[in-house]
Design a protein around this nucleic acid. Structure first.
Lengths: 264, 264
DNA sequence: CGATAAACTGAACAGTGTTCAGAAAGCAAG
DNA sequence: CTTGCTTTCTGAACACTGTTCAGTTTATCG
């Protein structure tokens, strides 16, 4: 194989066609995300996108081979977006104790979800009837990434002793999960990790779907209370009470514009 | 079932037309629920229903004035179905301690959700883009009912001392919620109630949406562990370990046929 | 019976995702 | 430049969808 094909040096010097292709792919996803935010996953319309970008509907099939394929791209992007927010939030307390970083990561998780309600539904709520994520895709990798961020923190906390070792409970086989994430959790550690994820994810989920009426409840306070309970249970005490606020202002500076959904 | 024409003399002497109307309304909802279970909320098709019941699509508008109206009926029915399951589960331990009844209710909540995944999505995950529940409808009443069941239990537990009074935490104004439910919770009680709901609802939500891979995790064990943590936190200790199983066998006897979604 | 209201039909409208033959444009080699 | 090949794009078509509306059938009641 001596011939240097177009695709080999594509990354270095993308041809005009490839550049246009990338730009249009991005533009299609942009329009789709607007429709997603406005009308939900079911409101994403192939023909609507075509109209918006000024092409015939059939031409879109050059860029995505079906609506499902577009969904896959959007889901992957959303997972990556989420984990970017979480990472940025953790980094605010990069040199702080594990407890603060955990709280910050969770706060970022919530902030992203409230500002990307429809994307949250897209990735966490199986909103598309027939859709199934392709095996071994970027989708699952992006999914694991955001979980791994939290796992890394609790593992560090248990290692340094900043988090108390979970008390023994019913056995849950950790081997499958350890293999997937490349870790060595005990049964109790895995159980507590998943239970904790359930807890704060559940709180976020209820809030995103408007099940905690903001007329009765101050969701900010309730959420910090939930997280406080969680960190108390993990033995890292109550974190710096300003963590949530510092994370929020950082996120609003870095990704401005999109309104939160709470108290709306 | 819905109490549609329980009104006035209709129940006493339903005319033939009214009887037919009720039967067809039920039949339409039945077909819609089948479509819901098979293809999700987005897969419910007006014309498909019409085909199934052997009528022209236009004729359905005699029974429901739009798809949204049908959704409302389905949502109401689903909330009622859920609270029926929860109630039946609690009743298994009618004379038992509050802790057992709480555990049983939560187990029923989960079993219903796993067996009615699409209905769970319908009522808890805002799957229908433009849909908004009508004000003061049966929908919100049915929604409150299932929450009130759990609230009644914890209130009883605090009254009898079976549940330990929650430790003080950040203030959350309980007045709105108290008004809605006709109760007199303190800030701390309300906070703990909502946080607890978040926790087990979150666990159920993750399971229903396949985010806890049943290849790695024994979901039954994980869920009981979550509930155990919860009841430990509420001070009612670990409940009878057989509660989940007894509830499940009761539910399977009473509502047989529909498979659970776990380990699928 | 006849009058009236409810139930139902069939056609139509504007929309949807997807397919396909064929035209237009970009690009490399002769 | 021209030739040949590939990618990109169009326009029409197909089988759907929810909803509306003028008419027709059917049931109920005076």
């Amino acid at each position: 194989m001596t011939s240097v094909t177009q695709t080999d040096n594509a990354a270095a010097t993308p041809s005009r066609r490839e550049r246009l292709r990338e730009e249009l792919t991005a533009e299609i996803k942009r329009v789709a995300r607007v429709q997603l935010a406005e009308k939900g996953a079911g409101g994403i319309s192939w023909r609507g996108i075509a109209r918006e970008v000024g092409m015939s509907p059939a031409a879109l099939y050059t860029y995505f081979e079906s609506l499902d394929d577009l969904y896959t791209a959007l889901i992957t992007d959303s997972f990556n977006s989420l984990s970017t927010w979480v990472e940025a939030s953790i980094d605010v307390f990069a040199d702080g104790p594990v407890g603060d970083r955990l709280t910050a990561g969770i706060a970022g998780y919530r902030e992203w979800s409230l500002r990307h309600a429809e994307e949250f539904r897209l990735i966490f709520q199986n909103v598309i009837p027939g859709y199934e994520a392709p095996e071994n895709s970027q989708t699952v990798a992006a999914n694991l990434k955001s979980s791994a961020q939290f796992l890394a923190l609790v593992v560090e906390g248990w290692a340094t002793g900043e988090l108390t070792e979970p008390s023994p409970g019913p056995f849950v086989d950790p081997s499958g999960m350890n293999e997937k994430f490349g870790m060595e959790l005990t049964s109790d550690q895995m159980r507590v990790s998943l239970a904790s994820w359930s807890t704060f994810h559940g709180a976020v989920q209820l809030e995103v779907n408007d099940h905690i009426d903001s007329d009765w409840v101050d969701n900010d306070r309730l959420f910090t209370a939930v997280v406080d309970q969680l960190s108390f249970m993990c033995g890292c005490g109550s974190a710096d009470p300003g963590v949530h606020d510092r994370v929020r202002t950082m996120l609003e500076e870095r990704w401005p514009g999109r309104p939160r959904r709470t108290s709306q």
